[in-house]
């Protein structure tokens, strides 16, 4: 089998925060501590160290690891939200990130305005949203409720609209953070179908999750993170075993 085209690659990515022993909430504290000559001894915290991954077209890569292992940080760096200290990231194509469903929705507005607002925040143009508008409404099954302000929606309806917006555009790359378990079973089944559809159309997918069932269901390969380091990259079976031994669960 030929190697698929790489749609997203990260090379030697490192993220570190400097955590001061004190935090300056205000200018007063900042000046006072300087006047007193107190040193704000900074501790370097390595959220990610030297991580490299490639995501091929039509491939789904699972990111797993314990809480605080750096999964979400890596996803944010891939999405271009967080700036890494070192490394290089190449994005070949349109990318959508699903770090939270319904980002940018305004609860006072109706579904229509929110679709335009949410999709526009994800970087899609008016013309593109026009073209996918009906598809989004139908997928979310909210046509009957499109004139209601979002504050009257149930949380499931809200999530459905968010998922529909993010996956409508056949992105080349889709980044997903733990949001697949939304809505009722029927909607979940349609979400799963949609993810598989995107995969078969050639979208490269990165899935951050604690749900090993989802990993087995969708992922072609798995990356295991441990304290910011990539400790395993390979098949889902072995990755899951590795992850479980790391967190001490059999």
């Amino acid at each position: 089998m030929a190697e698929p085209r790489v749609v997203l690659s990260a090379a030697n990515v490192s993220v570190s925060y400097r955590i001061g022993s004190r935090k300056f909430g205000s200018f007063k504290e900042f000046v006072l501590s300087r006047l007193r000559g107190e040193s704000n001894d900074l501790r370097e915290f390595h959220a990610l160290s030297d991580v490299s991954i490639d995501i091929g077209a039509g491939h789904c890569v699972g990111l797993i690891g314990h809480n605080g292992s750096g999964k979400s940080t890596l996803l944010k760096v891939l999405a271009g939200i967080l700036r890494a200290r070192d490394g290089r990231i190449n994005v070949n194509g349109r990318m959508t990130s699903l770090i939270e469903l319904g980002v940018g929705f305004d609860s006072e507005l109706q579904a229509r305005d929110n679709i335009y607002l949410g999709c526009s925040l994800m970087g899609f143009s008016r013309a593109e949203i026009d073209a996918h508008f009906d598809q989004i409404l139908d997928f979310a099954q909210l046509r009957d409720f499109m004139d209601f302000p979002l504050k009257n929606y149930s949380s499931g309806m809200y999530a459905r609209l968010g998922f529909a917006c993010a996956t409508a555009f056949n992105p080349d790359i889709l980044l997903v953070d733990e949001v697949l378990a939304v809505g009722d079973e029927a909607f979940q089944a349609r979400c799963h179908k949609r993810i598989n559809e995107l995969k078969s159309k050639g979208s490269g997918i990165v899935l951050v999750t604690h749900d090993m069932g989802a990993v087995q269901q969708f992922c072609d390969s798995v990356c295991v993170l441990d304290h910011g380091k990539l400790v395993y990259q390979g098949t889902p079976q072995e990755g899951i075993a590795r992850y479980r031994s790391l967190i001490g669960v059999q």
Binding site: I89, S120, F124
Partner: peptide, 19 residues
């Protein structure tokens, strides 16, 4: 760090500001 995007879509920012 470097962040390289092959297909950048910048043209929609004005639309977003309007929205």
């Amino acid at each position: 760090m470097e962040y390289v995007v092959s297909q950048q879509s910048r043209g929609h920012r004005l639309e977003l500001v309007k929205l």
